[in-house]
Design a protein around this nucleic acid. Structure first.
Lengths: 182, 182
DNA sequence: TGTACATCAGTGAACGCGCGTTCACTGATGTAC
DNA sequence: TGTACATCAGTGAACGCGCGTTCACTGATGTAC
């Protein structure tokens, strides 16, 4: 069942994007290779023709998610639009969309437990996101402000997601307070 | 090999404390029941005499970690000493000690994927921690300030831990910036 | 342009391993007399 | 206080399942002529 090389490239991309979403939604151990390839419309056997291991896919998926997010932020206006970005970050829509949202909030506490390749991919992506939030000027003040805003937003979303199913009132309070700052 | 009921209670506590540490260090899927009971000086077979399941233990362990942390904060002075607390939170010592540190930073992004009992235990513990940080007055301003400080600190530590093995400079920069605020 | 064939992307069964959980067994505890 | 025995905490082998990875196979692709 060979397919054209265009189709092959598209299949790889579909696996990567499905993985990026599913890993953020369920965590590295919450999805298996079969789930991912199935979500991409394939079976699991051909997976190793595209990626050397599940971990290698995780590394690419994590970096892909962060780099995409950085690009979106840059296109939206970068540092100048940071407070609007944070506002969206602290929205119920983002909190309820782990699979499509920020990989730092979705996978942050998993990363220190992953292998070095995954950690390196994450670090690269996060550095890119921070640069995007700091803006092209690279001046110290805007970088500091960007890092503060990101840390604040990430911490808030992590807490809000953790409690939202069981204490929606607390989740809303946290988001509300986070938004007051931006 | 029956043991005295005091010994039994102590064994249970040892399992709980080992679990609390190991879960924070390696995540819910990064430790197995045998690892935990072994760390507590027991074998895995007797585990189910103390806890109904690995998940039930996770729930207790998470709550135990958060409630202990809240107690420490209260004893240290609560809201009045919040900035000193945040300073310690943002220390290299805390970043390098996932197993003994804050359960929100260590397990935050795992929680939304856990079963309702675990989420409930986490929410209860986090509410306690927030109350401890807000102080007994319960006034809105100190509560808001406490939540801001916690969110900031948690986001910073999550990022610092994620990148520290691979980009120690970035990790230090993040912690430094976080400390400037407290 | 048409044909024969080598390549190789994808399939699905199978392998091996780890893990949560169960269970028959052991021997110390603690109670009844 | 001492003895006989029922209880039951802990042991370690075993069960069953899920998952990452491999592999023989299939049939479409794309190339050589």
């Amino acid at each position: 069942v060979k397919v054209s090389s265009d189709q092959r490239a598209e299949n790889r991309q579909r696996i990567l994007e499905a993985a990026s979403r599913l890993f953020r939604e369920h965590g590295p151990d919450g999805v298996n290779v079969a789930d991912i390839t199935k979500a991409a419309g394939l079976t699991h056997g051909g997976f190793y023709g595209h990626f050397t291991s599940k971990d290698a896919l995780l590394a690419e998926a994590v970096e892909h998610a962060l780099v995409s997010q950085a690009e979106v932020l840059v296109k939206a206006g970068g540092h100048a639009e940071l407070s609007r970005f944070v506002d969206g970050y602290l929205s119920r829509a983002h909190v309820d969309n782990r699979g499509g949202g920020c990989a730092v909030a979705a996978l942050g506490s998993d990363i220190p437990r992953q292998n070095p390749d995954v950690q390196a991919a994450f670090a690269k992506g996060l550095a890119r996101l921070i640069d995007a939030a700091a803006g092209p000027s690279g001046c110290n003040e805007s970088r500091t402000a960007a890092i503060c805003a990101l840390a604040q937003a990430i911490g808030t979303v992590v807490m809000a997601r953790a409690v939202e199913d069981v204490d929606a009132k607390l989740a809303d309070e946290l988001l509300e307070i986070g938004r007051q700052l931006s």
